[in-house]
């Protein structure tokens, strides 16, 4: 059903990073003193006198051309426009919903962003009809209830304002059934794997539907609780071992042997 293959492209190829970057660095640690040949990239800055490049957080050091990056291993989710996120409706009033999206601010969903805009349906003159209520975007917040789980896209986000969300788009909207789990947002690329390899394998071996979002939440639904539990354990294993090599093979092995042990077909 839902598949994140298209999404894996806009996320860094974590697999490659782990293979190429082995060194774990911590905040303030010197990445290089060769400031003539390197420029600080993501997660790195010059020190005050520009004599060295230092790391900003705990992560993996990566050198790409003349950029030095630090790929964080831990951190909180910061919404960016275009991100797909899983949110829970925590509050609503007649003009907007508020959603917990695992970020410092609650996300805002306005009723106009919950339904497709259908322009040009109403043709003036003979044969035309007056716009019906259902053709219009809903003017009030009756579609979703508090506690509903929605897959949303971030329309806009900045430091000062609450991020604005939409449910209009492919794969977006309310989730029924299944359950959700949360992991660190920085482990998400590893759950997806290179070209979606990890997530495909997880789906095939556990026969669960999985939807992974960039705010570190995962929706999953399987045939029975045993396979869902196995999937959750595999996801925990991936987040724990996110900085190690050969993860996909190891997880495959883990799932296959556990399935045998627990008698899940």
């Amino acid at each position: 059903m839902e598949n994140d293959e298209d999404e894996s492209q806009d996320i860094d190829d974590f697999e490659e990073i782990v293979e190429s970057a082995k060194e774990i660095v911590v905040p303030g640690e010197t990445l290089t003193e060769d400031v003539n040949n390197f420029i600080p990239g993501r997660g790195a800055i010059f020190n005050r006198n520009k004599t060295k490049i230092i790391s900003l957080s705990i992560g993996l050091k990566q050198v790409r051309k003349n950029y030095i990056n630090v790929i964080p291993l831990r951190g909180f989710y910061t919404p960016r426009a275009g991100d797909k996120v899983l949110g829970i409706v925590v509050d609503k009033n007649p003009v907007k919903y508020r959603l917990d999206i695992n970020a410092k601010d609650e996300g805002i969903l306005k009723p106009k962003n919950t339904m497709k805009k259908e322009r040009g349906r109403f043709i003036r003159g003979a044969g035309g009809r007056k716009p019906q209520q259902q053709d219009m975007a809903p003017s009030s917040t009756e579609v979703y209830q508090i506690g509903d789980v929605l897959i949303l896209k971030v329309l806009s986000a900045d430091r000062l304002n609450s991020p604005e969300l939409t449910t209009v788009g492919k794969y977006l909207g309310k989730k029924m059934g299944g359950t959700i789990i949360s992991i660190g947002p920085y482990s998400i690329p590893r759950i997806i794997g290179r070209g979606g390899s990890m997530i495909k394998m997880l789906k095939n071996l556990t026969k669960c539907n999985i939807f992974v979002t960039q705010n570190g939440r995962i929706w999953l639904k399987g045939e029975n609780i045993e396979s869902e539990r196995l999937l959750i354990e595999a996801i925990e294993k991936i987040t724990n071992e996110a900085h190690t090599m050969g993860l996909t093979d190891r997880i495959q092995e883990f799932l296959e042997s556990e399935k045998k042990k627990r008698g899940i077909d």
Binding site: I88, D100, G147, T179, I180, I181, G184, G216
Partner: peptide, 24 residues
């Protein structure tokens, strides 16, 4: 991390309840 939420989603509630009904 950030697993603790003030509002628990409806699907999580149903999920836990339905499985409890099956003794799981």
């Amino acid at each position: 991390m950030m697993n603790v939420k003030r509002v628990i989603s409806a699907i999580e509630r149903d999920y836990i309840l339905n499985n409890l009904k099956k003794d799981k």
